[in-house]
Design a protein around this nucleic acid. Structure first.
Lengths: 141, 141
DNA sequence: TTATATGCAAAAGCTTTGCATGGGT
DNA sequence: ACCCATGCAAAGCTTTTGCATATAA
């Protein structure tokens, strides 16, 4: 959807990686390209590997995903099935997930009041917020 | 903590299981006892098995956990590490989780306004709510 | 008696890792 | 030249399953 967002993340990822002393190999370069294109919402390692074709392997995929998570460029979450899913971390455009229980599909959404309440809850609980996830499950009404 | 709650859930579980045509074997009986005692918040299958000692096996544990989830007596969620965690489902006393990033420990909490906002979001998105989870991560401030 | 519950051990699926090789800087 | 990145294959972990046996109803 947002082309500018993708380009910005791709650029940011390249810079962060190289300034952290890592080298740009062919596999990792392809991986972050695919992530920039298809990683807006809940991509599995297997799906990523499928889209890479012969340009990647299990080791390069999992190692790169770990690396990107450590650097804060990616978010990892595991769905109910226990399979890890990844999506690109965009500080400006953060979203949550609605799971349609009829179809099993996930839809991203965001809500300002939800963000506000979560911030308030963190204050009430006496913590500095470092992250949060909300999953809503429902059926079309 | 709430002794009455535990007894109520245990009773409810027994009734639901037998009325669904299942038989009460030794393993399953021990499993729901342990769950009633220690399953208020995020117990893994392995932890459950450890507490069962020789009274259970992997198969009985995983099969019973599945069964209890299907009957709505238990909630399954998977943490960031991908390992499934279970807690008893209490319709009256539902909670969310605060993860202290300093220690990695989870603390249950609830918040009425959060519930209200989530209900409002579901309406806005055009779904009938069937469930929801909130995870807040932070450090003591 | 008869279907279900259980335990063992094997299998399955996702993820990680050791090691030799290739490639970036 | 040096060290990091990559790919393969093996190993590791969690979870599931087939099958023979034990047991509840």
């Amino acid at each position: 959807m947002d082309e500018a967002l993708r380009a910005r993340w791709l650029e940011h990822a390249h810079r962060t990686l190289s300034s952290s002393g890592r080298r740009a190999g062919a596999a990792r370069t392809a991986i972050i390209q695919v992530l920039a294109r298809d990683g807006q919402c809940l991509l599995t390692a297997q799906e990523l590997l499928d889209r890479l074709g012969p340009r990647g392997s299990y080791s390069s995929v999992y190692r790169s995903l770990d690396e990107l998570c450590s650097l804060g460029l990616l978010h990892r979450m595991s769905g109910r099935d226990g399979v890890a899913r990844y999506e690109i971390a965009d500080p400006d455009r953060h979203h949550h997930h609605l799971i349609d229980e009829t179809s099993g599909t996930a839809h991203p959404f965001n809500d300002d009041e939800l963000e506000r309440v979560i911030a308030a809850v963190a204050v009430r609980l006496g913590v500095t917020l470092t992250g949060h996830d909300v999953v809503i499950r429902g059926r079309p009404s």
